[in-house]
Amino acid sequence: MKGNVIKYERDNIDTDVIIPGQYLKVHDYAELALHAMEGLDPDFHSKVKDGDFILSGRNFGCGSSREHAPIALSHSGIKAVLALSFARIFYRNAVDGAFLLPIEIEEDAYSDISEGDEIDIDIHTNEIKNLTKNKTYKMKPFSEIIGKIIEAGGLFKYKPD
C-alpha cells in the first residue's frame, strides 16, 4: 500500500479536532469528509489526496467514541494513520468499520519520515519502506484479533475459527 504522508508532529490529536462535534449530525460521509481535521488544520481538505497517510505522535484519536472520526478521514482518502500510539476506541472503530488502518510505529519512523514522503506499507512483513528516503522501518504487528478483523474486512465480516 503506497501513499504520501501528511505529518502532524504532536501528541494527543483528539476526535474533536478530527471531526468537531457540530458535524456529528451529518450522515452524508462525503460531507463529513469536507470537515475532517478542520479543528486542527483547516487546509487539510484542500491538500489531502486519495491514498494519503497521516503520521502523528502518541495517543492519536483520544477522546470521544465517535466513529465519525475514522469515517471522516477515510472518506477524505486517508488509507492509514501511522502513530506512536492510539487511543483504544478510535483504534477499534477504524478497524471494525474497515475505514482505515491504524499502524503503530516506533520513534525511528516517526522522526525520520517527513511531510510529503512516499511510503509503502506492508502489513504482512510489518515493514514500512520510505521510497523518498530509501529507508525501511518496522511497524508493530497487529494483534491476532485485529489482524483477523482487518483481513475479514471489518467486524461484521469476521467469523471466529
Binding site: S65, R66, I89, R92, G97, G154, L155, F156
Partner: peptide, 10 residues
C-alpha cells in the same frame, strides 16, 4: 466502557 457505532450494532 465506551464503544463505536460498529460495536453498538454488534
Amino acid at each position: 466502557f465506551g464503544i463505536g457505532t460498529s460495536e453498538v450494532e454488534h
